[in-house]
Design a protein around this nucleic acid. Structure first.
Length: 560
RNA sequence: GCGGGUGUAGUCUAGUGGUCAGGACGGGGGCUUCCCAAGCCUCUGACCCGGGUUCGAAUCCCGGUACCCGCACCA
């Protein structure tokens, strides 16, 4: 374990020294759970997100949404977060241990979740509950809010979003229309989330402000999702019954282990992580135990990556059912349903009431028209009808209407879509990439980040073998040409050539170009591959193109 | 939030109640016979913050803050 922990410390050291990330606000002593991304880290994050957007948004034609970080109180009341995100904590006065009050009262009091602060305190005293560790007396409960709150304007309570998802749910009707009223409808949002963690730890792994990329896939629960290209992707599964399986996505659905939409995304996640350079031997999907599920979730599979501190959740795929839309419907009063179209529109015969005006008229005079309207819209009935009009109940006799049978065509039925939510912790993924990319060369012990060219923050370093006799100017020219092609490049003439290679390796620069004396004779340069330290010589005029295809991973270095 | 530990240049670290806080690596400049962190010269730069004890505190004490480990928490 200490060996593994060592890796973590080395990553932290490089991250700070070379500019990937570091604790925020350090000159004021720092602030727990907040980090700055430095030049390399910010670029790395951007590259990760670019690939994410390509694979999840563009490839699948999802809609993108960019909604605010702050939301009104009612939004989070409806979502269930104000309830579920507030814990009442009690502390032992003797040994100082802190407990969740609801945990202590479970089994002692019915409907613990309905108790407020006073109710909890009363229940603790009435039942003589004491510290489970040492038997000491407990303090009154204290609220601990896991959402950051603030005021909008003078006094309107608002919360910073703990997930980007709610912004998508409340926009379902618009998005549904923009998708031409078709399901499945996938909406993606990349942005920040905020959670006031009790104790943020482990650097980038537990942040109070973090980067997330979320998809809400609205589906018809009656429809099975075709897995397409994901059919044969092998999923490493750990079920909540403790079963470990390596089976294809297709099989996982066929065996009833994974719901089809979720299986599709699990396949995509595997391909995504592979393209980021994550070691597939250290990836698994772990199914949540029923008691572990979030308040909105019916089933959750966490994608976990093995890091030096153990298995770490980086992506969660949840089946949120119709929880969110149902809640927002009831709190907002808006219709958030979708239409399930029948393959063949159904003809339905319905019995309706048709008022007979010749009878209603004489009885009700002026009110006859209004009463007729009411009767017309009533569901089928027989016998005398009582109708309320002008605050009075009046009797419509049976002979004042007749029963007719009408045929209607029904095109479909309305239902609340279910939501499948793959949610990506970008900061955790970024950290996992660094750990999996890190190694020390066996011969020299030098540190290397074997970042894939696609995500490497810097693609090329250009060196003059010596900074004289025009080699330096030539090298700087080459760097400028590369930059103009949109390739992130830097120039380095400081120190020996070996040191410059080492410096580049440590931050994962995949390719180094060196201008030497032969360059002046035949306009060729050497290009060096980080992972093998091998060099090839190519013409300067071909360099930008070559580097471009290398960085797009269209060709490998060995093919040069 | 609790218990334990830690906090010295960009990084890793030495150190003691009392001269100028030492080293290594890094970084800048220069020299060099220059393709994998070579060498030499030179420069750069630190005692987490606040209070207390003391003639004197980076060192001891208290508080804060941050990190690490454990507990708890982690929708």
């Amino acid at each position: 374990m200490w060996v593994m922990n060592d890796t973590k410390n080395k990553i932290i050291e490089i991250a700070k020294r070379r500019g990937f990330y570091w604790k925020a606000y350090e000159i004021y002593g720092g602030l727990g759970g907040f980090y700055d991304y430095g030049p390399l880290g910010a670029q790395l994050k951007e590259n990760i997100l670019k690939i994410w957007k390509e694979q999840f948004i563009i490839h699948d034609g999802l809609l993108t949404l960019d909604s605010p970080n702050l939301g009104p109180e009612v939004l989070y009341v409806a979502s269930g977060h104000t309830d579920k995100f507030t814990d009442y904590m009690v502390k032992c006065e003797k040994c100082g241990h802190v407990f969740r009050a609801d945990e202590l009262l479970k089994g002692v009091v019915n409907e613990v979740e309905k108790l407020d602060e006073n109710g909890i305190w009363k229940a603790i005293r009435d039942n003589g509950i004491r510290c489970p560790d040492c038997g000491g007396p407990l303090t009154p409960p204290e609220r601990f809010h896991l959402m950051f709150s603030t005021k909008v304007g003078m006094d309107k309570v608002a919360f910073l979003r703990p997930e980007t998802a709610q912004g998508i749910f409340v926009n379902f009707p618009i998005l549904y229309r923009l998708n031409r009223e078709k399901l499945p409808l996938g909406v993606a949002q990349v942005g920040k989330g905020f959670r006031n963690e009790i104790s943020p730890r482990q650097g980038l792994l537990r942040l109070r402000e973090f980067n997330m990329a979320e998809i809400e896939l609205f589906v018809d629960p009656l429809e099975n999702f075709p897995l397409g290209e994901m059919n044969e992707v092998i999923l490493p599964l750990l079920t909540n019954t403790g079963e470990e399986l390596h089976i294809s996505a297709k099989e996982s659905v066929a065996k009833g282990i994974v719901e089809s939409h979720m299986a599709y995304y699990m396949g995509k996640v595997i391909l995504f992580l592979k393209s980021l350079g994550i070691d597939m031997q250290r990836v698994r999907f772990r199914q949540h135990y029923p008691e572990e599920l979030a308040h909105y979730s019916r089933d959750t599979w966490d994608c976990e990556i093995l890091l030096s501190m153990g298995w770490v959740e980086v992506i969660g795929i949840s089946n949120r059912g119709d929880y969110d839309l149902r809640r927002h419907m009831s709190y907002s009063g808006r219709d958030l349903t979708a239409l399930r179209r029948f393959e063949n529109p159904k003809k339905i015969k319905i019995k309706k009431l048709r008022p007979k005006m010749e009878i209603l008229g004489p009885i009700f005079k002026r009110d006859a028209k209004k009463i007729a309207e009411i009767v017309e819209n009533m569901s089928y009935t027989d016998g005398d009808i009582y109708v309320e009009i002008n605050d009075q109940k009046v009797k419509v006799p049976r002979d004042a209407y007749e029963i007719v049978v009408e045929e209607e065509t029904v095109g479909g039925e309305r239902f609340i879509p279910h939501v499948i939510e793959p949610s990506f912790g970008i900061d955790r993924i970024l950290y996992a990439i660094l750990e999996h990319a890190y190694y020390e060369r066996s011969d020299s012990g030098y540190k290397v980040l074997k970042l894939k060219p696609k995500i490497a923050p810097v693609k090329v370093a250009v060196f003059p073998l010596m900074s004289k006799e025009g080699l330096d100017e030539k090298a700087e020219d080459i760097m400028r040409v590369l930059r103009k092609r949109g390739i992130s490049a830097y120039y380095d003439e400081s120190g020996s050539i070996g040191r410059r290679y080492a410096r580049a390796d440590e931050v994962g620069v995949p390719f180094c170009v060196t201008v030497d004396y032969r360059t002046l004779e035949d306009s060729t340069v050497t290009i060096r591959d980080r992972d093998t330290a091998q060099q090839k010589r190519i013409k300067i005029e071909n360099l930008p193109e070559t580097v471009e295809s290398l960085c797009r991973e269209e060709i490998g270095f060995e093919e040069l």
